[in-house]
């Protein structure tokens, strides 16, 4: 990574406040029903956030980036891929701003745009899980983990847990299937840039 594209440099680049800046908060209002302008900028969302210590942008900064309309940074940020959706921020927000919903929305959009996630394995895991749901309607934890290890090339990931889980009868080698798969498949829609989900 060279000096001009390093995240640190991007972080300190001047934010541009222009005629485009309001459109993102309008869009969030329409699609998520969240009123960004209610933010008091107090930081209560971020102080108790489960993962604030690893976030590149804390929840307060995410809301601020929406206010200034900086979509690029929002869609590329690491926080999209390490938010645990613990709902602490929304419950504590004095203005009731639903930050987890916003993060879900932005992540969905980043995927639509084909933006490479900062933590590709997190996205991969989501996709493999939904693949299973689309195929059999349920998740078999055994096959999901095996498939994930294969695709993420972490062949020994969680392997130490395997035998113990097997002997305790915690792994079900014959996954159950939903009978009316036609009804489940109808819930999925093809998405650009999302592998393996389209029929």
């Amino acid at each position: 990574m060279n000096a001009t594209t390093s995240p640190v440099n991007q972080y300190f680049k001047a934010l541009q406040l222009d005629e485009q800046s309001n459109s993102l908060s309008q869009e969030i209002l329409q699609n998520c029903g969240v009123e960004i302008e209610r933010c008091l900028e107090c930081g209560k969302c971020s102080g108790g956030c489960s993962n604030t210590h690893i976030f590149d942008y804390t929840p307060r900064k995410i809301v601020q980036l929406i206010k200034v309309g900086n979509e690029d940074r929002l869609l590329q940020m690491d926080a999209l891929w390490c938010c645990v959706a613990c709902q602490l921020c929304v419950d504590r927000c004095p203005s009731g701003i639903d930050i987890p919903r916003i993060i879900d929305y932005l992540r969905e959009r980043a995927i639509d745009r084909g933006i490479v996630p900062t933590r590709p394995n997190v996205k991969l895991f989501h996709e493999l899980m939904l693949d299973q749901v689309q195929k059999i309607g349920r998740v078999s934890e055994l096959y999901l983990i095996l498939n994930y290890n294969l695709k993420s090339k972490q062949y020994l990931n969680n392997a130490e847990l395997g035998p113990q889980m097997f002997f305790k009868g915690k792994l079900n080698p014959i996954p159950a299937r939903v009978k009316r798969m036609d009804k489940v498949k109808r819930l999925f829609r093809p998405k650009p840039g999302q592998k393996g989900v389209a029929e």
């Binding site: 107090c42 930081g43 971020s46 102080g47 604030t52 210590h53």
Partner: peptide, 10 residues
């Protein structure tokens, strides 16, 4: 637990 909103860090 708080965020120092001037620094943007916990």
């Amino acid at each position: 637990r708080c965020e120092d909103t001037l620094m943007g860090v916990p």
